[in-house]
Design a protein around this nucleic acid. Structure first.
Length: 662
DNA sequence: CAATTGCTAAACATGT
DNA sequence: TACATGTTTAGCAATT
């Protein structure tokens, strides 16, 4: 080929500015943690410290959850909240005020957002039910004491009082139930999975119907242990429940007490004027606070409640946009719920481990709801991405939630902004294959830009095929097949694909019988990336946030990184097993994500979950090269990178070159 | 601050 | 001619 094209005289593109400027925004929302003081280290034992750290994380999670669950970020709760413990700086930095839903969405990788969100409903339900059970139990106790009092004291004065208290409690409970029902309905409105929604309503109404209370109380007396079971079943949500209880109770305004259950929105309207009794401080409407509308992305100023309600009615009526926004909010809540669950589980596992409980099963290998999550993810993402109007086509155009384009995409919007830049797959670990495997459905359906570089995507596409070669068009097809995002802006990304193919030496064009195909020179590919994995907090931070580990972990990890949390800072860590085909390895914890070291997903898709759990407690520092037990890769690695021992050099994606192409 | 990396845009060449 | 495929250059932004 004779190329004389080197003389390209070009007029500098003028239209680029608008595009590129957007980039900065996408990163701006990250977790900015200040300096960390290690004052938590005082004189605690490692175990205590660990526990403490986890508790901190959990508390933050709970706070966020509470806020989210109430649909607004009310500053008042943050002050009055349960944290009677003095909070060290690290936690103070993670205070909920600092993490807005938007930030969280930015920090969270969309797939995780989506995936995790799906699990929340179950957890939420569980919490609710647990909560109600508590309430019922409380009522029951009151009833009992009352009866006893009746027998023993006979006098009706005290009985009158108690009855009053009892009725108050009853009323309160009913109010709570109604409010929760409303919440549920709100969720249902925005697309809770039919089965779950039905189940939720059913179970809740069943648990709540006042007429059945008596019977329920009876049941409670006989089944009290169920509560204990729930309490002990790994989640340790008891405190969260308590918190939410107090919070909800405190926050609940009388105006909500008699809301009709038929329709959340209309009931909101009915609550209008008579809500002027004590709720000056409590905030009469969850969506109204500090004179402005708390509807996500709204912030419209409303002088009084009436105006707000009017605004609510006009601006946030039941339409596509509102529905979509609700959905997003629901996902946010779900996400946080799940995060909390996982953190709790991890804490338990860690505690169990550190307390030398050898036979302790390791629950963290798989969080309960993964399956349902997967299904839900699918069903959920199947429902909306197509039905809803999509943002305008320009790849980098910012989509404001205000557009008719609903903010379903808002989560993805944040990720859509700007070029991919450093994609995590190329940085640390996250084998693209496992990421893809886990979030396959999500990327497939959600218009979210995948967090991988073009190069890694191309490579993935090629390696996924049996003969490790693809034509350009097949690569295109793979992109469009795998990512909804690439079903638009074709000109842009196709150009980029071609550009990458040509540019990178790791892509080799091979003339074939029926044209040219592209292959991957794995060695070149590996060479291409300068491995750098110091244990520096910044890197750790980048790593984790880059992995889309989620807001909780982002903040949580910031704190941990500073206190030298061993797991985070040890580069070798554990080997997780992931494969391009297995969906079971959740990116649920730092370790599993951080070091999917030699999960050469594409080349050797095996590695069993057993290895994962088996290795999990090898929280080594710089142990011998990651798990020789695995398979062929290792030896290659050892030879190729003599730096196996060096934590710094840990090449995350460890793809074991060799064994391939020319 | 410089180098590197990644993305986008675009010009151009070649083949069908 | 139009389009697909490749190659190359350039500018920008983020990261190292």
């Amino acid at each position: 080929m004779v190329e004389s094209a080197s003389e390209t005289i070009r007029s500098s593109p003028a239209n680029q500015n608008g595009v590129n400027n957007l980039n900065s925004q996408s990163d701006g929302g990250g977790v900015r943690e200040g300096s960390a003081s290690s004052e938590t280290n005082g004189e605690m034992s490692p175990v205590d410290l660990l526990h403490f750290q986890q508790q901190q994380a959990l508390q933050v999670a709970r706070q966020i959850l509470l806020q989210q669950a109430s649909g607004l970020s009310s500053p008042s709760i943050n002050d009055s909240k349960q944290s009677s413990v003095q909070v060290p700086v690290s936690v103070a930095m993670m205070s909920p005020q600092m993490i807005t839903p938007q930030q969280m969405q930015q920090i969270l990788s969309p797939p995780q957002l989506q995936a995790l969100l799906q699990q929340q409903q179950a957890v939420m339900l569980q919490q609710l039910q647990e909560y109600y059970k508590k309430q019922q139990e409380q009522l029951h106790l009151q009833l009992l004491t009352q009866q006893q009092a009746t027998k023993q004291q006979v006098k009706e004065q005290s009985l009158g009082n108690k009855q009053l208290a009892f009725q108050q409690q009853l009323l309160q409970m009913q109010q709570l139930q109604q409010q929760h029902l409303l919440n549920l309905q709100r969720q249902g409105l925005v697309g809770m999975g039919p089965s779950q929604g039905a189940m939720a309503l059913q179970s809740l109404t069943q648990a709540m119907c006042p007429s059945d209370l008596q019977q329920l109380w009876k049941e409670m007396t006989t089944n009290q242990h169920t509560e204990d079971i729930i309490k002990h079943e790994g989640l340790d949500l008891s405190t969260a429940t308590t918190n939410s209880t107090s919070y909800t109770t405190a926050k609940m305004s009388p105006s909500l007490s008699h809301l009709s259950l038929s329709n959340g929105q209309s009931s909101m309207l009915t609550s209008r004027r008579d809500s002027s009794s004590h709720e000056d401080h409590c905030g009469p409407h969850p969506l109204y606070g500090h004179g402005e509308c708390k509807w996500p992305g709204c912030e419209a100023l409303c002088e009084d409640l009436g105006q707000f309600l009017k605004h609510l009615n006009t601006e946030h009526a039941l339409d596509d946009r509102s529905t979509a926004q609700c959905r997003v909010q629901m996902q946010v809540v779900q996400q946080l719920e799940i995060q909390l669950t996982k953190e709790s589980e991890r804490l338990q596992a860690m505690m169990a481990h550190l307390h030398m409980r050898p036979s302790e099963p390791k629950p963290f290998s798989q969080p309960l709801n993964l399956v349902s999550s997967a299904t839900l993810t699918k069903s959920c993402s199947d429902t909306y991405p197509d039905g809803l109007p999509h943002p305008p086509t320009s790849a980098t155009a910012p989509i404001t939630p205000l557009r008719q384009g609903p903010s379903v995409i808002s989560s993805s919007t944040l990720h859509n902004m700007g070029p991919i830049r450093r994609r995590n797959s190329d940085k640390f670990c996250t084998p693209i294959s496992s990421e893809l495997a886990q979030n396959h459905e999500f990327y497939k359906n959600a218009d979210v830009r995948p967090p991988f570089t073009y190069a890694s995507l191309i490579r993935q596409a090629i390696l996924e095929t049996p003969d490790r070669q693809l034509t350009l068009n097949e690569i295109y097809n793979w992109f469009t097949r795998m990512f909804a995002y690439f079903r638009r802006n074709t000109a842009t990304w196709k150009n980029a694909v071609r550009h990458n193919l040509s540019l990178h030496k790791c892509f080799v064009r091979v003339e074939n019988v029926k044209g040219a195909v592209w292959t991957v020179d794995e060695q070149e590919y590996q060479k291409r990336r300068p491995p750098k994995m110091t244990g520096s907090p910044t890197l750790v931070k980048n790593m984790i946030s880059g992995l889309g580990y989620g807001v909780l972990n982002a903040s949580y990890q910031a704190a941990l990184a500073e206190s030298n949390f061993p797991l985070l800072n040890s580069p070798t860590l554990v080997n997780t097993s992931t494969s391009s085909t297995s969906l079971h390895v959740a990116h649920d914890d730092v370790s599993s994500t951080v070091e999917q070291v030699n999960s050469n997903g594409s080349n050797s898709p095996r590695l069993s979950p057993h290895q994962y759990s088996h290795q999990i407690h090898v929280n080594v520092k710089e142990e011998p090269a990651e798990s020789e037990d695995d398979n062929r890769p290792v030896s290659h690695l050892a030879t190729t990178n003599q730096n196996v021992m060096l934590p710094d050099e840990q090449d995350p994606e460890e793809e074991l070159p060799m064994e391939d192409l020319p």
